[in-house]
Nucleic acid binder design. Structure first.
Lengths: 205, 205
DNA sequence: TAGATTGTTAATCGATTAACAATC
DNA sequence: TAGATTGTTAATCGATTAACAATC
């Protein structure tokens, strides 16, 4: 891992890799910065700058060698060991992401999903869906590191405490609540309500 | 509506309002900038600056009058007419948001949800869940303005074209695809995969 | 070679935060 | 009054983009 990369650069590197993994690099093994930038709708200088930050260099004529770039992005942003993710209360989207991570060299794995309702537990692909009552136990047992939570606001504080106690170190928070976590836990908030109100504001005429 | 507000200010104003709506302002009708900032885990100067931008003033001793502030935020960021939102392929979360918008003076309303599967259509609260095959027709008919899409990447281009043709002006995009839309359509991307990889990077030790 | 692209620095842009006079 | 908060400007910070020498 390369330390001290800017947050947005980490995100973009992840995007570059994902885009390139679905790019026909068997036939076209090289790509220019402007081409990759175009695919992601960003500025070519951004691509070059990000790759500079991870010390990856291209050929002034051929561009960047895709297969090598994918590997170098992995070295820059992936952890050594596999990291496990839990999805709490977000069935559909959780399954889609589980599938997307389902390739051999991904360091992320959706290890479990949970839901509040008492409906029977189900299995989807390799991912089991448990009732939240078993959450603490399962997170401990499977050594789950990361969690995505999307629940009715009422239960959030309780659930947060529970998963942090069980060892979760990073949370994507889709609730409107502002989570109470120790400083060692990294939280990224996404409030769909405010995004929709923003969308409404910026599409007015 | 107040024009040319910075995007992040619009989002925060939405957050202030939501937080204040669930604040006991019957008993405590005023709030200080540092108190509101604390509830949202942001800087007090931010609150004051945002409220300055919408021309809202407080009392140097009592702070801001909550009931009036809620109204002024509405004047600043809400549209005149109600705006309708469609959720495409994101059942659980869609229903949660539908509930949250379910108060009288909200200008946003979840008018329909859609899903790919052929399962029977269901009704939840006031929100009907249709099969995507009826999407174009329903969006036109109900005059839906905004859409949230979270689908397997395969179908994204087709669906996007369809909803834009039907009149959608703003899209929250949860797929990893980069949508092809006319310039008049406002797209906000959220890629859960790259957020999780970022989370993984920043929680390493 | 001529022309295009890379790698990198500098300039720009926007968002956040510090600072403080004015106020009561 | 003394002390705290507001409203606002200036400073800081970080992210994006422009520019261009070096390269082949």
């Amino acid at each position: 891992m390369i330390e001290n990369l800017p947050p947005n650069t980490v995100e973009r590197l992840s995007n570059y890799r994902r885009k390139l993994l679905s790019y026909p690099f068997q036939e076209k093994p090289f790509i220019h910065s402007h081409r990759l930038a175009h695919l992601l709708k960003i500025n070519p200088a951004h691509v070059r700058r990000d790759l500079m930050l991870i010390g990856f260099t291209g050929d002034v004529h051929k561009g960047y060698e895709i297969e090598k770039l994918i590997i170098e992005i992995g070295k820059a942003i992936d952890c050594q060991h596999k990291r496990k993710v839990a999805f709490i209360g977000i069935g559909d989207l959780g399954r889609a992401v589980a599938e997307a991570f389902n390739h051999d060299d991904s360091k992320l794995e959706v290890a479990a999903t949970f839901r509040l309702t008492a409906e029977p537990e189900i299995q989807f692909q390799n991912v089991h869906c448990y009732n939240v009552s078993k959450m603490k136990q399962i997170i401990r047992q499977k050594k789950i590191d990361l969690a995505v939570i999307a629940l009715p606001n009422a239960d959030v504080d309780e659930i947060t405490k529970l998963i942090v106690d069980a060892g979760v170190k990073g949370i994507l928070n889709f609730t409107s609540a502002h989570l109470k976590v120790p400083e060692t836990v990294f939280v990224e908030n996404y409030d769909m309500m405010s995004k929709l109100e923003k969308l409404s504001y910026f599409t007015n005429e």
